[in-house]
Design a protein around this nucleic acid. Sequence first.
DNA 1: TATGCGTGGTT
DNA 2: TAACCAAGCAT
Length: 356
Amino acid sequence: MSAPSTPCADRLLAWFKRHRRALPWRGPWGRKRDPYRVWLSEIMLQQTQAATVVPRYEAFLDRWPTVDALARAREQEVLDAWAGLGYYRRARNLHRAAQVVATAWGGRFPGSVKELESLPGVGAYTAAAIAALAFGVRTVAVDGNVARVLARVFAISTPAGRSSRRLQAIGADLAPEALPGEFAEALIELGALVCRPRGPRCDICPWQSTCEAFRTGRTADFPVSVPRKRPAVRYSVAFRLTNRRGEVLLRRQSDPGPFQGMLVLPATPWAATRPSPAAVQAAEPPGPAWRRVAGLVEHGLTHLTLRTEIRAGATTRDPAPGEIWHPGRDDGRRLPAYTRKLLAHGAVPEPAAAAR
DNA sequence: TATGCGTGGTT
DNA sequence: TAACCAAGCAT
């Protein structure tokens, strides 16, 4: 039998140069890139699709064009600018990392994988991505796309989650001396556009001739995935308190757990069963007579399904410390999707809306 | 190593 | 339609 041929970096680069998407965090082909912009985009792209990130990235960059500007922002502003993107710990780490870069590193990002990995929110993937894309380090960043590509090309039957070190080493060996950043990004793009999870486009793949999974007709067998558990269900009762202007009382989620630091409705803690009357009463903001809103709002997180019942009430009082009145209706943008959903559910339509 | 962390798109 | 999954990280 003949020796298996090695995937060719030049062939992948040629494909990428021709087919790569024009995304706002990408410059012209082969051009040196601003580490701040690479870092910001990579944090946003963690577990988040490019199409979702594009408008948020541009808005973020408009508001905080440099790492120093971001370091000077207040944490609340950063969290609110992140609202709707999910995984809110990313936003807190982003702000903290900006302050580390601004102070400990004099406003310039470090250029080695190891130094980058010391920044909050920067793990093995993101550190490698910044090093390759912004600093020309000859390495690859193994995300879900790259893990899938390599698992297929080399028919690796270890589950991707447990073999990322090995995949990293395999990928880095393939990287060329010239344009390592473009190569690292090309691998990701190949996974996103061609070597897709289902229905891979092997017919247009630049690596088809060296892909073991294609050769053996087993692209569907790689990467090997571990079945995931079904999310647990959690129940709570949330309180929708409105003032005369139709504004809604929100507070910052202070408990560790989902939505920490974000604007949420006052509510009982989440529990495995529906809250008892005593638990509901203990969590009630003081004041009004509460009206039960029909139905249950269901919201899915990666590991939880939240089922929330809403009680509505009206008041004339001022917000307590740590609480704010939020317009509620229009700008849903400072809010997590979960909070937005709770505001919208069974809301009494305003006259203007009802007339349409 | 396993688990906790959002949200939206795709099939 | 109910998985499945996305440019993962921290603990």
